[in-house]
Amino acid sequence: SPFDTQALVLQFDSAAIAPELAAITTATLTSTELFEPSRTYNLTGAITSFAKLLPNWNFEVGGFDTTLNTDTFAAWTEGTAPASALAVPGLIAGTSTAVRLDPGTEVAALFAAPANDFEVEFVAAYEDSGGRDFNFFVRGQDASQANIRYEGGVFSAFNSATSWEPIITVAVPASIDGNGDGDLEDGGDTKNLFRVRFTGTAWGTASPTYEVEILDAGGSLLATSGPGLAFFQNSAPTTAGVNQMVFSSEFGGIAGMWVDNVCASGSVVVPDAEIVITASSFDPVAGTGSVTFTSVDGVPYSLRASNDLNQTDLYSAPGNLIDSGPGTGTSTTFNFSDPAMVGQSFRSYRVESP
């Protein structure tokens, strides 16, 4: 009826998605109301692991509109000029697709988990602009970000207190797109690739830092900033782990840049904090329940069940995982269905965090 709301749960079949990539599909919500039309929604799904924290990390899965380039890559959003983010042949052997950023746009992807200690490494190239040549951001959960640019042979990090701080001086040759078609595969093109490795440490704590390393195309180290950098724009990421990876050609007159294989890995540091169940309710007839507990934002938790407290190993038995998900602030609630509760004279529940 009008003004009613219902939860609609959609689940991708993980077996149908290539490991650590992405899948896209559409769903149609059909209306029976005379004046409310049916609607079609675009859906994106992805499988990630702590070895590949960015979905569609290699840009191999296209988006919903690759013809007009308004949604070129699944799981990546394009900036204010989405048509300027182009799918081009992969930069290195083993990849078929990379992204070329014409001036004035960006591509951005969310990390699958707010890792506190993490590493991002990607393959890159740029066209000589005479000014800023390359730019990327590693963002925290709030407005905090590490803003790294390459200009005039120097990698610099933006510091809100003092503006740009030089962190690495290294010569990285420019590439040339001879015929202006966006790729670096033609006879008149010159492809000069390099790699960037960004290592974040203790993000989401009082003392977040990072290190930037520049490597050649084969992975040999050319130069490093050294660990312990704490130059951030807006603020330092002290409240939670890493959130978003952004490549941008919007600032500084960038002529063009290429990116491929953005490999991100990391771990969540679980604070030494006691988990306290603060509220619970159960309906043994319906087989449903609710458990509220103290938590840390973004840290993974699981709810497990057992019919026998004398056998604590039953909590980890197959089928006894009832619910799981990241902490939502300082208090998290799992509303769950547990058919095994029905008809049981005793059943216990335990909240865990790895």
Rank of each mutant, 00 (worst) to 15 (best):
A15R: 13
S248W: 08
T66I: 02
V196Y: 12
S235Q: 13
V296D: 01
N335D: 12
N192S: 12
S144I: 07
D177N: 15
D323K: 15
G289T: 04
V269F: 10
S324D: 07
T190Q: 14
T224V: 08
N234Y: 11
L91P: 02
V276G: 00
V291T: 09
A157V: 04
I148L: 14
F118E: 04
E274A: 13
D338T: 12
L43S: 06
E185Y: 14
P284S: 12
A273F: 00
L8A: 08
A87H: 06
L43N: 06
R139H: 03
T97F: 04
V212T: 11
V291H: 04
V262Q: 09
Y150W: 11
S265Q: 12
S331V: 08
Q145L: 12
E274C: 00
E185T: 15
D183K: 13
T312I: 14
D338H: 12
Y301R: 07
A27E: 03
V262H: 05
C263F: 15
A161Q: 14
P227R: 10
Y150V: 06
S129W: 11
A305Q: 14
T201M: 05
T5E: 04
P55W: 01
R100S: 07
S353A: 13
A217D: 10
F50M: 07
N159C: 04
E36W: 14
G252T: 04
T333E: 04
C263E: 05
A157R: 06
F251A: 13
E20F: 05
F232I: 03
P326W: 11
V270Q: 03
T288Q: 09
F198I: 00
S265D: 09
N320M: 06
E151V: 07
I214Y: 03
P173N: 10
R350C: 06
A206V: 12
G226A: 09
T77Q: 07
V285Q: 13
F137K: 12
N116M: 00
T97P: 07
V246D: 09
L309T: 14
T312F: 13
V291W: 02
G180V: 11
Q6E: 03
G131D: 08
N56G: 02
N42D: 05
T97H: 12
S144P: 13
E60Y: 01
T201W: 06
S281E: 14
T238E: 08
F231V: 01
G204Q: 04
N116P: 04
F134R: 04
W57Y: 14
C263T: 10
G140C: 07
T30K: 02
A125E: 03
T328A: 10
F247V: 05
V351H: 05
G241Q: 06
S280L: 05
A81S: 14
A317G: 11
E250S: 12
L21D: 09
F12V: 01
N310L: 15
A174C: 04
V99H: 03
I254Y: 08
A317I: 10
S337M: 08
P173W: 13
Q311F: 15
P271W: 05
S302Q: 14
A202I: 00
D128H: 12
S163A: 15
L53E: 08
T201D: 10
F158S: 08
F198A: 01
L321R: 13
S144G: 13
D102K: 15
P326T: 06
R100V: 01
A223K: 15
W76D: 00
